[in-house]
Design a protein around this nucleic acid. Structure first.
Length: 610
DNA sequence: CAATCTGGCGCC
DNA sequence: AAAGGGCGCCAGATTG
């Protein structure tokens, strides 16, 4: 099958779009349109002769989309953005699942780095135009190169200078059926150009990058599905926990204030100053200073250190306990339950690749759900949860991306840190700290000493990390294994005056940037491996109709499946990890490193032992 | 007044 | 000499 870009030599997309149009899309049936483009299998380009524009608002239109999708489940659908297309679609057709996708935004963010996702930028970068010349969101093409904004049917989606028209990008593409069809065709052409860039061999170009583009696209689909479906949640159980820890829900604002004052009172008494606002770190620090405790900040680890000293004032322990309870009350209390739990589901909004390194993120506290509440994540009747944690994923990923043969051998063990400890001649805990310190850029304390041994024992891996840090500090970009561009963080142009505070700050900023890129190459690559695994699992669940992925947590998958299928799914999860990880190692050009997962079938999330 | 920054902490 | 990376979220402090 021809997997290559289809519109070679098309120049700007205008011509390509027009030609695509000429092939005759089925006439759309409504004014309100979302472009769904029938893409190629493989990339989907070879077969992509038709662009469909299908209506998608309201149940009638959604069913038309469904009908279109049901005709053929196998193609890879090219979407400008899964979020844009699927969020409204899933509202009216919750069971709709696209098997495979090419998400232009997801691939663009992989190639370009950063979080920019405007269609005009996505198109400009794919077409080799300067994205700075693209129209900003909400901006009409007033400066557009002689191109006007009159919505002439025949104008096409592009300006004379090749950039996307601002009004089309702002939603004008769906003004008419014909426009939607041309917009869909432009999506196809853009996918083709991205595909070419991914396989070009320069920069991000690699087999790994192409494969990553596919799994990142799948993750984008998954993110929308996670947001629509939510986590099965036992709200009664959660209320019990919250009641026990912070009391019943206050009936009104006055009661809430009284409850807060009750919580504060014992700590304020010990501080000897009822006027202190415990929620203000400044005031707390000042109040402690009054007691003769001079601290640079009031972080809990610092308070704990001081509280452990003989003769430490009782206020420290009281303050720590207060913080814990306050934190829970504010972040996970009754208000949080009201806001995020409905219909037996805990819902969040998900991003498939956030942050510099491209991890999945979730809002609504789902990624930081306190341990006390994890028991409330509970399978629905007739269902079970399958939980799987990757074991020591970051050092294993480091072995792949650095190509360190010694570390790859260590990864043969279930517990990677044991052979590393033997090699370094230190205790396992020390070895673990040393490995983590190397990846995070920590240089102080006990880790510092073990780090030197790390450098001697695993020079390839540590050299790789040092190089990533050097690049970051030099202001260069780094790339993850799958080719995601991670931009070095901007350091303020601090004037360098020798011997001044400014120089210190400048050095600190450079060091911080080095730590950031050092970690990003590992963390970001691990995120890609995880998503490849998640995509594989998702595909299997779709095919078998056994259940769904309900949570992704950096190295952990939580599935909600039919009870009868749970044990089998659990076994398949492990097989899927084997397949996904060996494919991934091959694609990114690393040694075949072993990856492991702990899998458990449980009713409640808290029951699984990590 | 809203937007942004900061300290702090939950999770990985 | 070097003082651990990421995210989201909250509340207070600061800034425009």
């Amino acid at each position: 099958m021809n997997d290559g870009p289809r519109d070679s030599g098309a120049g700007t997309g205008a011509g390509a779009a027009a030609r695509e149009d000429g092939r005759g899309a089925p006439p759309p049936a409504a004014d309100d349109l979302l472009a769904v483009v029938r893409g190629p299998s493989g990339l989907g380009l070879a077969d992509a002769r038709r662009a469909w524009a299908v209506p998608a608002r309201g149940p009638v239109e959604a069913s038309a989309v469904l009908a279109a999708l049901e005709r053929d489940r196998s193609p890879r659908w090219v979407l400008w953005s899964s979020r844009e297309l699927l969020v409204p679609l899933l509202r009216v057709a919750p069971d709709l699942r696209l098997a495979r996708a090419w998400d232009l935004v997801a691939v663009h963010r992989l190639l370009a780095g950063g979080a920019e996702d405007a269609p005009s930028t996505v198109h400009a970068d794919a077409a080799g135009l300067d994205p700075r010349g693209a129209p900003a969101a909400g901006q009409l093409d007033l400066a557009g190169d002689g191109a006007t904004d009159v919505p002439e049917e025949d104008d096409g989606p592009l300006r004379a200078d090749g950039h996307v028209r601002g009004d089309w990008a702002d939603g004008g593409w769906s003004d008419t059926p014909r426009r939607a069809a041309r917009w869909a065709a432009l999506a196809l052409a853009t996918a083709g150009r991205q595909h070419a860039q991914l396989t070009a061999g320069a920069g991000a170009g690699s087999a790994g990058a192409l494969q990553t583009a596919r799994s990142e696209s799948a993750a984008a689909l998954l993110a929308v599905e996670l947001g629509a479906g939510g986590l099965p949640f036992d709200v009664a159980a959660a209320r019990e926990v919250v009641d026990r820890l912070v009391g019943p829900p206050p009936r009104d604002e006055r009661e809430a204030a009284a409850r807060r004052a009750d919580r504060d009172a014992p700590v304020l008494a010990l501080l000897g100053d009822p006027g202190v606002d415990l929620r203000s770190p400044h005031q707390v620090r000042a109040a402690l200073e009054e007691l003769g405790l001079d601290l640079p900040d009031t972080r809990s680890w610092r308070l704990e250190q001081m509280a452990a000293e003989p003769g430490a004032p009782a206020v420290l322990a009281a303050l720590l306990a207060w913080r814990q309870r306050e934190r829970f009350a504010v972040a996970s209390g009754h208000r949080w339950l009201e806001e995020h739990v409905a219909g037996g589901r805990l819902r969040a909004s998900w991003s498939a690749s956030d942050g510099g390194a491209g991890r999945m993120t979730a809002s609504g506290g789902v990624h930081s759900l306190p341990r006390e509440l994890r028991g409330a994540v509970r399978a629905e009747p007739g269902h079970l949860l399958v939980r799987a944690d990757l074991g020591q994923v970051e050092p294993r990923v480091l072995a792949v991306v650095s190509g360190d043969a010694g570390l790859a051998r260590a990864a043969e063990a279930d517990d990677l840190y044991s052979p590393v400890a033997a090699r370094l001649g230190v205790a396992r805990e020390v070895a673990k700290v040393a490995v983590l310190a190397a990846m995070y850029g920590q240089t102080s304390g006990a880790a510092g000493e073990a780090l030197a041994a790390m450098e001697r024992a695993y020079p390839v891996a540590t050299g790789f990390l040092v190089d990533a840090a050097r690049r970051g500090a030099a202001g260069e970009d780094v790339r993850t294994a799958g080719g995601r561009r991670v931009r070095g963080r901007a350091v303020d142009d601090v004037p360098v005056e020798a011997g001044t505070v400014a120089l210190d700050r400048h050095r600190q900023a450079l060091a911080a940037r080095g730590r950031y890129t050092r970690n990003a190459v590992v963390q970001g690559s691990a995120a890609e491996l995880f998503k490849a695994w998640a995509a594989t699992v998702r595909a299997r669940l779709l095919a078998g109709e056994d259940g769904e992925v309900v949570l992704c947590l950096h190295d952990e998958l939580l599935l909600h499946v039919r009870a009868g299928a749970a044990e089998r799914v659990a076994r398949e999860l492990v097989a899927d990890l084997g397949a996904a990880s060996s494919r991934w190692c091959r694609a990114v050009g690393g040694p075949p490193v072993r990856f492991t997962a702990d899998v458990a079938v449980v009713e409640r999330w808290s029951q699984a032992k990590g």
